[in-house]
Structure formats: structure tokens, C-alpha cells
Nucleic acid binder design. Structure first.
Length: 218
DNA sequence: ACCCAGGGTCATA
DNA sequence: TATGACCATGGG
């Protein structure tokens, strides 16, 4: 039988507990991490964030003022460091010119999302990471883990566009309360589950909390 | 030596 | 719209 999205959430939460996402002590740190983690493991992002903090540069204006090559050196552990130095400065330019958190938080979610997507280097997932985890908006983040898990569960085909999936998840969870908190926890749980059970290299996994609803269950 | 990792942009057809 | 090339470090 087909499990509901909320039932899958409950299974994950019962198995793993609260994930306390996003790792980071401020909205701005969440934003920086969201850009740096593009196609990169979080442990590499932690190393780069450590470099930035140790240089006392976890600040929008300081990052703008830093020569791009010096920023790239700090970002070396995340890979794509030249591109990400440019993207991070583009983000900081926009963030500073837009009045930072206080002003941006007055915008409605659709408007804020449109502005985020207009920033060079910010695509749909990065924008939604920032909307959900920095601004606390009710947005369901779709990433490679989400696609892989729900494809294995047989609930999506894998060919859907980002927007199609996001709208699907948000619609199916529309009746739940505290959606921002639910989406926050759900995405963290999906990532945790992907890391320890639903790995790319182990599609045959049949011993997790979702085994009875997974198409690989035998 | 390979695959994978909390994507996005750009050129091409 | 839909592919493919490219970006680049670090762990398993």
C-alpha cells in the first residue's frame, strides 16, 4: 500500500529523532553554507566555514571587501572554489544592497524567492534552503537525496522538474500544522537517512525504517 | 582508480 | 526544453 508523505515523515522521525537543522548559528551563516554546499559534502563546507570564521570574515560587508582570490583560498576545501567565491560575493552584494535580514524578511515568500533566484549562483535548491532555514518560510526543499529516496519509494518517477516536486510535496503536506517546522525537520531527516541507509551505491538496502514501503522491500 | 557529495551556469540544438 | 561540459576538493 502507498504510504503518505506524512507517514514517511513519522517513520523517519521515530527512527532518528530531531535533526536540529540547519547547522549554523545565524541566518547569514546558513546563507553562506547554502551556497558553499552546492554539490559538495557538508564536512568540506565545515572546513571552509572554519576558515572564514577564523579570519573573522563571517560578515556580509567583509566578504564583499575581500579580494576574490583571497576568498577563493579560504573556500578551497569546498571545491569549485573560484566559482563559489564569485557566487558568494554576488550573494553578499545583493544581500547588502537589499538591506539584509531585517528588510528582506518583510517580503512575502514568493517575492523573496524571486529575488533570490535572480542572484547569480542561486538556483532553486539554494534559494529554498535559504527561505526555509534562514527565513523560516514554509518551503519544501528538493535535493538529490529527496529525489533518490522518493524514487526508490516509488512515489515519483525521477523526471519531474524541481518546481513540480516542490509543489507536490507542499500540496500533500498542506493540511499539517507548523509547516515550517515540519519541512525543516523532514528535509534534515531525508539527508540523515540518505547518509546512513539510502545511499547512492546501495539501492538494495532493505533494512531501514522504510523497508515495508520501499520498492526494494522483498 | 573509481564513485560520490545537502547544484548552478552556460553553450548548443 | 533538454541535454552536456564545466567547475574541483575530500572521503570511502
Amino acid at each position: 500500500m502507498a504510504a503518505t508523505l506524512y507517514n514517511i515523515y513519522q517513520r523517519l522521525f521515530n527512527a532518528y529523532g530531531p535533526q536540529h537543522w540547519w547547522p549554523g548559528n545565524s541566518p547569514f551563516e546558513v546563507m553562506v553554507g547554502a551556497v558553499l554546499t552546492q554539490n559538495t559534502s557538508w564536512t568540506n563546507v565545515e572546513a571552509a566555514l572554519h576558515n572564514i570564521k577564523q579570519a573573522d570574515l563571517l560578515d556580509c560587508k567583509k566578504i564583499i571587501a575581500l579580494p576574490q582570490q583571497q576568498l577563493a583560498t579560504l573556500l578551497r576545501p569546498v571545491g569549485y572554489f573560484n566559482i563559489k567565491a564569485k557566487r558568494l560575493q554576488s550573494y553578499c552584494d545583493w544581500y547588502h544592497q537589499s538591506g539584509q535580514f531585517r528588510k528582506l524578511n518583510k517580503l512575502d515568500t514568493a517575492t523573496l524567492r524571486r529575488q533570490l533566484l535572480a542572484v547569480h549562483g542561486v538556483g532553486p535548491e539554494t534559494a529554498d534552503d535559504i527561505l526555509l532555514y534562514a527565513f523560516g518560510r514554509e518551503v519544501f526543499v528538493i535535493d538529490a537525496y529527496t529525489r533518490r529516496l522518493f524514487e526508490r519509494l516509488g512515489l515519483v518517477t525521477g523526471t519531474e522538474t524541481y518546481e513540480t516536486l516542490r509543489e507536490l510535496f507542499e500540496t500533500k503536506l498542506n493540511r499539517q500544522q507548523n509547516k515550517a517546522q515540519l519541512f525543516n525537520e523532514y528535509h534534515g531527516l531525508i539527508v540523515h537517512h540518505a547518509k546512513y541507509f539510502c545511499r547512492a551505491s546501495k539501492p538494495e538496502c532493505t533494512s531501514c525504517c522504510l523497508q515495508s514501503v520501499c520498492k526494494y522491500d522483498s
